[in-house]
């Protein structure tokens, strides 16, 4: 928390803990480091941020509670890990919802009123203040067989979370969603306990999943979105100048965040393609092929709207659909 030298806003210094869900060399960690440097610069050293990478601080869900309680001033949090807290955050799990173009998607994340006002309010009610929604890259499928059409998913054991929404989502393709611990995933993919998994490219490469999968589909079936959050109490108590510097940093980091993930995902895609010891067949879905998947996902939007979220959530979701339509 804050350790002030004196009560005046002028000379007070702040030592913050910023917790992320990833480790060095991954998107969230690199983003948080640059964020820390930029804010430190802007405040002439008044704000010092120490970035805590994913390690022994418990699970992602524990980290969410850490920011809620103010033990970490800031944190990068995947809405996927807050599904039990703010059901509406699962909107980012809907496949083929956002536009195919990653830059347009980022534009929506940056400007959407549905997200930046309505969804933010839902999180604030849970003592979390999202400052920005950032993309960590498009999600891709890997498999022990080629995944090109919905038919390819028939009986396919897909490692994914076992939330009702994910059951419906992969059920729509005829796949069998199989929950599996992350630490057993590499071996289970290798031996075929499960047939495939989904992740952004940088994570697939970092966890070496491509070594034990023969196929990767550039499906861009959705975007892995994370939220840059701060504890609301800490944010509200900030003096004007510090808060302005923080808000500016958030704005300036939007483009940087996009660049960081873009560069990492591109580099590591090359690394997967060039790994001749562990050859991986990479295909990219065409517009027509994506349309076939999108068609099957339309009812899932209704399921999400009717079964998962509340009235406020529906207002947010309808607005988001309009905003997305405007961008297409």
């Amino acid at each position: 928390s804050t350790e002030g030298d004196n009560g005046a806003s002028g000379g007070e210094t702040y030592d913050w803990r910023f917790v992320v869900e990833e480790t060095e060399g991954q998107v969230q960690y690199e983003y948080a480091q640059e964020f820390a440097e930029l804010l430190n610069e802007k405040t002439d050293g008044q704000v010092n941020i120490d970035v805590y990478d994913f390690g022994s601080l418990g699970s992602e869900v524990d980290q969410v509670e850490g920011v809620q309680q103010g033990m970490f001033e800031m944190g990068i949090i995947s809405p996927g890990f807050t599904g039990g807290l703010v059901a509406e955050g699962q909107v980012f799990s809907l496949q083929f919802l956002f536009p195919d173009d990653q830059e347009v998607t980022q534009e929506i994340l940056n400007t959407s009123e549905a997200l930046n006002t309505h969804l933010v309010e839902l999180y604030e009610a849970q003592n979390l203040k999202p400052l920005a929604f950032m993309s960590e890259g498009a999600m891709q499928w890997t498999g022990n067989r080629e995944l090109r059409t919905p038919d390819d998913f028939n009986g396919f054991k897909m490692r994914t979370q076992s939330s009702p929404l994910m059951l419906e989502t992969y059920g729509a393709y005829g796949a069998d969603p199989s929950p599996l611990s992350w630490s057993e995933l590499y071996v289970s993919l290798d031996r075929g306990v499960v047939d495939g998994q989904e992740n952004p490219i940088f994570f697939i490469e970092d966890a070496s999943f491509h070594e034990v999968q023969d196929h990767m589909t550039i499906s861009n079936h959705n975007t892995y979105v994370a939220m840059v959050t701060i504890n609301p109490g800490i944010y509200n108590d900030l003096p004007e100048d510090i808060r302005t510097a923080l808000d500016e940093t958030v704005e300036e980091m939007r483009d940087r965040g996009f660049e960081i993930q873009d560069q990492l995902n591109e580099e590591l895609l090359d690394s997967i393609v060039n790994d001749t010891d562990n050859p991986t067949e990479v295909i990219e879905l065409t517009e027509e092929e994506r349309a076939e998947f999108r068609e099957l996902q339309l009812p899932i939007r209704d399921f999400f709207r009717d079964e998962i979220i509340g009235d406020e959530g529906r207002e947010m979701f309808d607005l988001l659909l309009e905003e997305i339509a405007e961008h297409e």
Partner: peptide
Amino acid sequence: RSIFGSSWSFAN
């Protein structure tokens, strides 16, 4: 999972 091709989502 092996016989009916569907996992018990609640098992874990």
